[in-house]
């Protein structure tokens, strides 16, 4: 794994999200609690809604376009809906957010 520093933890509001542009497309960075971060594809698998604009609750996000709910941990659609979005390894170190650059590269090569 090659960890890339993408910003300060404080730049993402609690129960909020920010966007990361990559060659593999836009990745949404979600902060679910003071000390917990997840990264998934920003694109809803339903109609392409921007997930970073959704409401973050528990370890889930609701797409702002049609209220599909996605698990930030597994990328699985919740409830009756079926589908999956990509998830990416992220971690927090000394107040900085690190994302796995290899995982992004694998996506863009694929």
């Amino acid at each position: 794994m090659s960890w890339i520093d993408i910003g300060a933890l404080g730049d993402v509001p609690v129960r909020g999200a920010r966007l990361v542009k990559t060659h593999a497309g836009c990745i949404a960075l979600f902060r679910t609690t003071e000390t917990e971060i997840f990264a998934t594809s920003n694109t809803c698998a339903h109609k392409g809604g921007p997930l970073s604009e959704g409401i973050v609750h528990d370890r889930k996000v609701t797409c702002p376009l049609h209220n599909w709910v996605w698990s930030l941990e597994t990328g699985e659609a919740q409830g009756a809906d079926q589908g999956r979005i990509a998830t990416y390894p992220v971690r927090i170190e000394d107040g900085r957010i690190l994302i796995d650059g290899d995982a992004i590269d694998r996506r863009s090569a694929a």
Binding site: I4, P13, R18, L19, V20, K21, G101
Partner: peptide, 13 residues
């Protein structure tokens, strides 16, 4: 600032 992406990795690469 919060309306812009937190990071742009396409530039870095």
């Amino acid at each position: 600032r919060s309306f812009a992406p937190i990071a742009d990795l396409t530039l870095e690469a």
